[in-house]
Design a binder for these strands. Structure first.
Lengths: 363, 363
DNA sequence: TATTAGCACTCGAAATGAAAGAGTGCCAAC
DNA sequence: GTTGGCACTCTTTCATTTCGAGTGCTAATA
């Protein structure tokens, strides 16, 4: 059975009212608020049919109606209009994004925090997963027992490690190793660093002290680290604002699920190229723990043809419209800053003193 | 009035039973469990006096007794015996500490997580606050528009920054700047980097492109960052396991207070030199939000004569003995690894493949 | 055929009240 | 100083009642 225009209006009214109040919505309330000129009795008939069709349900016989996941889905797909952000909101987001231009990892955890603050739901952010390689090695000789390995990655981030040795080495060996690593270890992936490669490098450098393998370990470590996307979850406690999580056990279950990570979001490549915001409603989620929650996800361009994700978790009675608008804007802003695969250009006009934010890394 | 031996035993029994069950403790229960050979009636008399003395209170006339903050204080100071950790527990902690030997920031956030897991309370960790200076600058010339600044700090951490310029520079200038920065910017504090110093360096280097000020900005940035202690809070959600936080509003209040940071712990220098675990019970806390919670804090030697903190937050009915033992052990283990002011020595026996943990940075 | 007014009915939420039970305080006896 | 005994207090629990919101259905109406 096709759904009539009026039914749509009524469904939208129920969803919106329910999102607002978290109470089952009765026929009377709709007759008054939704501006269709008919009485509550008519609405009742329509409501009964919407229940039959599976869009609504009743907690019990004499109660108002509540949207089913299918009802929310219909709302999100056809009925909802994406909320426009006010000028103040866009300004605020932009400004806060601008103050967070730091190292990528940090940026993205800040963005997660920002998303959570803006929406008042728990939020999470995933860094892009990309085939990073090392572009260039430098070894800084500090003293006979100490050197620093600096590796510049293909995504223009830089990693370093201070190494202290129980034995002394000479600068010549370091120079040799530096050249060899730049020749043999750049542009390759983690699994191309084979014991064979390491051994031959060791021999070529006349390294009898195992330094080659220390450097190789470092290479493997940073490559494997860069491979995996990182997840940041923030604001789990905001769940407690929602009436559906007033039961501490329920809240705790979801919160601890959240805090264990980023399995929550589907792999980023699912979202490749999609500028849209994606909504997963209740049972549409794969994870058992999320079956009665909803997730809203936006993806951002992290440069290098990779995409990262920002998501928000809440009850199915989530304010989809507002959340989608905010996430979408946030993701777009982030894309603008990270996209293009290049590190931000350091302008000459930099303020001399770049103040960081509060150093709080709450987890 | 001095407190008799028997009263002490009874008080201890009440506290321990209450910690265990979270229910007011009656005279009968004590007569049975605590092995003093007297009847419940005698205990009742003693209990009444303990109430008078302020160590216990009754939620209402016909209920059992509950310790007051003063009662807990007495318990912690005189009655409690520090719980010994089992061999398995110490092994587990040691092992998990060993797998976390990474960059300092990361280590300490991992330690916070570990503390929370071990105790099942929210935990927080503060890095040491110390007068860090830059020990050595290196500038890696990548190409005409790109260079990497590498700064080695006095605490043997290394910071880097990739700089991309809209104009091109030559390697000679970089060399000059590198030498100048090593001569003039090492061993000094943030506020000694004056515009005057920057200007004179700029002139000495014949730098007409403002690169000096970019590097100086970086120096200021990392110095001011290193100055501030960083706080990591983890496992806020474990609060929900505690019956005293079953009220979602109460839980939410405390959780959001926690997640905003590290004001919770007193400055680390308060604890300087103290190997002991410190306990703050209910109203002893300064922050209004903590007035009916307790905090247990241990300090660790972060090297360089500085100390960082690990703390745990819970209801006043916290298992002080167990928590104190665990934190103390954890702090000692951490001290062993960080203490002495030197970065860990990279052994030659390193496994080739150093696997990181799960990349989850939940927050 | 679609809409509406009216009304009996259902079911949860809140209010009321009675009963049960844990624990006390105190007294008198030891 | 200790103990058994007992009346008393106060919460917790459970059943019962009341109240009201909202429904479904019917019959009247446009």
């Amino acid at each position: 059975m096709a759904i009539s225009e009026r039914k749509k209006k009524i469904l939208a009214a129920v969803v919106e009212e329910y999102i607002r109040t978290a109470e089952p919505v009765g026929s009377k309330a709709i007759a008054q608020t939704a501006g269709l000129g008919c009485s509550s009795a008519t609405i009742r008939n329509e409501l009964a049919e919407l229940v039959n069709m599976g869009y609504l349900e009743q907690p019990h016989t004499s109660a108002g109606r509540v949207p089913t996941p299918m009802g929310y889905r219909m709302y999100v797909n056809e009925l909802m209009q994406m909320q426009k952000l006010s000028l103040e909101e866009t300004e605020e987001i932009n400004q806060r994004l601008n103050t967070k231009l730091q190292e990528l990892d940090d940026t993205i955890s800040q963005v997660s925090r920002l998303a959570s603050q803006l929406t008042d739901y728990p939020a999470l952010a995933l860094t892009a997963q990309s085939a990073v390689t090392i572009k260039r090695f430098d070894i800084i000789y500090v003293d006979a027992n100490t050197f620093i390995i600096v590796a510049m990655m293909s995504n223009n981030t830089v990693k370093n490690k201070l190494v202290r040795l129980p034995v002394s080495v000479n600068e010549g060996l370091m120079k040799k190793l530096s050249a060899l690593f730049n020749a043999n270890f750049t542009g390759i992936s983690e699994d191309q660093i084979t014991p064979l490669l390491i051994n031959s490098t060791e021999r070529a450098a006349d390294d009898t002290m195992g330094i080659t393998s220390v450097i190789a370990s470092f290479a493997i470590e940073i490559l494997s680290e860069a491979d995996k996307p990182m997840a940041f979850v923030t604001g789990e406690n905001r769940l407690l604002n929602q009436p559906e999580y007033r039961d501490p056990d329920k809240a705790h279950r979801l919160m601890s699920y959240l805090s264990t990570g980023g399995h929550i979001l589907p792999p980023a490549d699912n979202m490749a190229g999609s500028e849209e915001v994606r909504v997963l409603i209740g049972p549409e989620n794969v994870a058992e723990e999320l079956k009665d929650s909803s997730v809203v996800i936006a993806s951002y361009d992290a440069g290098d043809n990779t995409r990262g994700l920002i998501g928000v978790v809440g009850p199915t009675r989530m304010d989809y419209s507002a959340v989608a608008a905010k996430l979408s804007f946030l993701a777009a802003g982030l894309s603008r800053r990270l996209g293009g695969g290049e590190a931000p250009v350091e302008g000459m006009h930099n303020k001399l003193i770049i103040k960081g934010d509060d150093p709080i890394e709450h987890r």
